[in-house]
Every structure is written in C-alpha cells, then in structure tokens.
C-alpha cells in the first residue's frame, strides 16, 4: 500500500494518472439501456472496468405521512461479493449505505422525479419507485457510475399495467407510459492526493486518496447535493473551484443520458 501510494502520488503530482488519463478525464463510458426486461427500467454503465447495473421497480404503496400527495422514491445499494475482493457478505456496511444515500440525494434534491404525478389517492395510495444499485465489478467511482445508471434507468422506466377502477395491477405487463422525469442531475466525484484534485478515481486511487468529494449538478449549473468522504480535507478555495467546474464536467456525462 505504501509503495502504491508513493507511486500514485508521484504520478499525480506531475499532473498525470497511472492509466494515462489527464487529471480531469473520465475513463471510457459504455451504456446499455434497459438490459433487464423484468425491471420497469434499467441501465448498465461501464466506467472503465467499473460495471454497475441499476434496476428500477415501480410498485404501489403508501405515501409518507408528511408528504401525502407524493410518490415515494427509495435508493438501495447492494455491494455483493461478486464485484470485489473487498466486499464481504452480510448486512449493508456504511460504504453501501453512503453510496445509496448520495445517489438518492442527487435525484431527490434535484427533483428529478415529479413525485406529485405519482399520487393515486392522496394519503393512501401512490407509486413507489425503487432504484437498486448492483455493482458487478467495482474498479472505483461507484458513485458516478451508479448515479448515471440510476438516472438513465429512471428515464427509461415504464409503469406496470394498472386498472384504477378495479385496483388490479399486473406487474408482469409494462405499459408504454414513462415515469415523469423533470431534471437530469449528474454526479461528479473527485479525489484528492496531496494537493492534486482529479476526476473519476479508480480503485487503486481510491485505496490511497486522502479525501473525496461528490457534487451533483443540474442543467443550469446549480448544485443539488454534495458529499465529502474519507479522512482528508479540502480548503474552501478548492471547494469553490470544484462547485464551479462541475457544470462543465456534468455536461459531458449528461450528453450520454438517453
């Protein structure tokens, strides 16, 4: 680990990356839309070797008492052992909870889903949108890969067949009606080693980085969610630069959202 750290430090301090990238360059991104026929919507995002599937399930349920006229949205992440030697079996660990909550915050606070349109009977019955994150290969930056897969899966999700009069629902029959999606929040995650800040950390970079920051931005450049991680720090000047630069980097990923 010490050798890896000193190697990555010296490469990054020269403004380069171990894999030949620039500091603010993403790895290659490949996207599959709706690969999972059983899901209401799904996306598989490959970010370099990182590989994440997000599936959306839309079910009937009850609204939360404080928002009786809004549908429910829930993000969950399963860091299963298939994806990395570092992932263990067992109940969700803080890393999985943080991943789910950061992806959730971008979508929720960016008001991506028009939850007011998911109400069937106020206070009683609403549509619940579940977004489940399943990494298949974790080679760093699950945050951005998962957030991208989630918004693509949402944009391509269709409601199940439901007859309001008879209250009959057929989860195995999808309609052509799409989820009401208003915005496209995009998450950009940066790592910091010494005083160098770089985009899209790989897993080897994640193992040695001092600090991490994820910023979700909307089309207008406004920030709708942020999260700092790991035990290092950022200066206020660095944070201000990152929040300003994120619009530009988000735009590149947003172009991939279909």
């Amino acid at each position: 680990m010490k050798i890896l750290k000193s190697h990555l430090k010296s490469v990054i301090s020269k403004g380069k990356r171990d894999d030949g990238r620039e500091l603010v360059e993403y790895r290659d991104i490949k996207i599959e839309v709706n690969p999972i026929q059983r899901a209401n919507g799904s996306a598989r995002v490959r970010l370099g070797n990182t590989d994440v599937i997000v599936g959306v399930k839309i079910e009937l349920g009850e609204p939360f008492p404080d928002t009786p006229e809004d549908g429910v949205q829930i993000v969950n992440a399963e860091l299963n052992s298939i994806a990395s030697p570092d992932f263990e079996e067992g109940p969700p660990r803080p890393e999985a909870i943080e991943l789910a909550r950061v992806v959730d915050r971008g979508i929720r606070e960016g008001k991506a889903i028009d939850t007011g349109k998911l109400c069937i009977t106020p206070g009683e019955k609403v549509w619940c949108v579940f977004m489940d994150i399943y990494p298949m290969n974790a080679d760093g930056n699950l945050f951005d890969a998962s957030a991208l897969a989630a918004i693509i899966a949402l944009k391509n999700a269709r409601f199940p067949k439901y007859d309001k009069k008879t209250d009959e629902i057929k989860y195995d029959e999808l309609t052509n009606e799409k989820l009401p999606i208003k915005t496209t929040p995009i998450l950009n995650t940066y790592g910091k080693i010494n005083n160098s800040i770089f985009l899209d950390p790989s897993s080897s970079e994640e193992k040695v980085l001092d600090a991490r920051i994820s910023v979700a931005t909307l089309e207008n450049g406004n920030v709708c969610a942020m999260q700092k991680g790991e035990t290092g720090t950022f200066t206020i000047d660095e944070i201000n630069k990152i929040t300003k630069d994120s619009k530009k980097y988000a735009e590149k990923l947003r172009k991939l959202v279909k």
């Binding site: 920051i213 700092k228 950022f234």
Partner: peptide
Amino acid sequence: TGEVSLLQMDGELTPAEIE
C-alpha cells in the same frame, strides 16, 4: 489550517451562493 473535514449538501444552490 482553514480546512474543511465534513461537507454535505442537499437542496439547490448556485456556486456563488455556496461561496
């Protein structure tokens, strides 16, 4: 040192407002 060791945010803010 003037460093930030926890940062979270939800809602909507412009970069200038964050500053």
